[in-house]
């Protein structure tokens, strides 16, 4: 059931608790693999993501990444978020509103010598196709541009794991398509485990290698999208994936 030490590389997560938020999660993501967590609101997707990031401490479980243990309830160890190498892209972007685009990215480069941070941040912004945007505040940018700054900031941590919390939910279709393309480029260049929380099956189809269907804190089924679509484990999975025929 648990597979915490099964692989020295990649991410392995096992979370258990009954309250306050029920969780029963077991998953592992290999380097370069993108795992999508899908499920309705309140299914525990975001809580799982926050637990991996170190922003939420569940009662029981173990989280290990690339051989280092971030959380182990049995041993009582918990590495705080600021010490984990996590790139987290928030649904709200969570850009610091009083800082410019480049300053936002530089805040995640605190481990570099001060004189290298600006150049490095500029390189990351350009990689996200944000040219001449260095000195703009978030309020002066479009939703898609803010989203790219947010991704650049996440990558600035040189993360062991990239976590995306419904990153495309607030942008229009054209921007969404561009962002998906850019995410594919990032994955090609940086082979790290990626977890994408979404409720959009289109995102899953286009981006995910595997999918985890969650409900009420538990994983109902996991596998490739094809497998899950072809053989949903139960009626609930079929309902969540919208596979049931419409009732007349």
């Amino acid at each position: 059931m648990r597979e915490p030490d099964a692989q020295p590389f990649g991410l392995s997560v096992a979370l258990r608790q009954d309250a306050p938020i029920p969780l029963d999660v077991d998953l592992s993501v290999a380097p370069g693999e993108l795992m999508a967590l899908v499920g309705p609101s309140g299914s525990g997707k975001t809580t799982t993501l926050r637990a991996i990031a170190g922003l939420y401490r569940p009662l029981h479980g173990r989280i290990a990444c690339n051989g280092s243990v971030w959380f182990d309830s049995t041993a009582g160890s918990f590495v705080p978020a600021r010490q984990r190498r996590i790139g987290l892209v928030f649904q709200s972007y969570a850009l610091f509103p009083h800082l410019t685009a480049i300053e936002n990215v530089m805040e995640a480069l605190g481990d570099l010598p001060a004189d290298q941070r600006r150049d490095h941040a500029r390189t990351l912004l350009e990689r996200m196709h944000l040219h001449d945007m260095d000195d703009r505040k978030p309020a002066q940018m479009s939703g898609g541009q803010q989203q790219r700054v947010s991704v650049a900031r996440a990558l600035a941590r040189r993360p062991d794991v990239l976590l995306l919390d419904e990153p495309f939910s607030a942008v229009d279709r054209v921007t969404r398509r561009r962002l998906r393309r850019e995410l594919a480029e990032i994955r090609r260049d940086l082979p790290m485990p990626v977890i994408l929380v979404t409720h959009d099956l289109d995102d899953v189809t286009r981006l995910a290698d595997r999918v985890c269907v969650m409900d009420r804190g538990a994983i109902l089924q996991r596998g490739t999208l094809d497998d899950v679509m072809r053989q949903p484990a139960n009626a609930k999975v079929a309902e969540l994936l919208d596979l049931l025929p419409d009732e007349a």
């Binding site: 987290l88 805040e107 995640a108 605190g110 900031r153």
Partner: peptide, 11 residues
């Protein structure tokens, strides 16, 4: 979210 972002930025 901003406090969480600061933490994940390693601040």
């Amino acid at each position: 979210d901003l406090r969480d972002a600061a933490a994940t930025c390693g601040m």
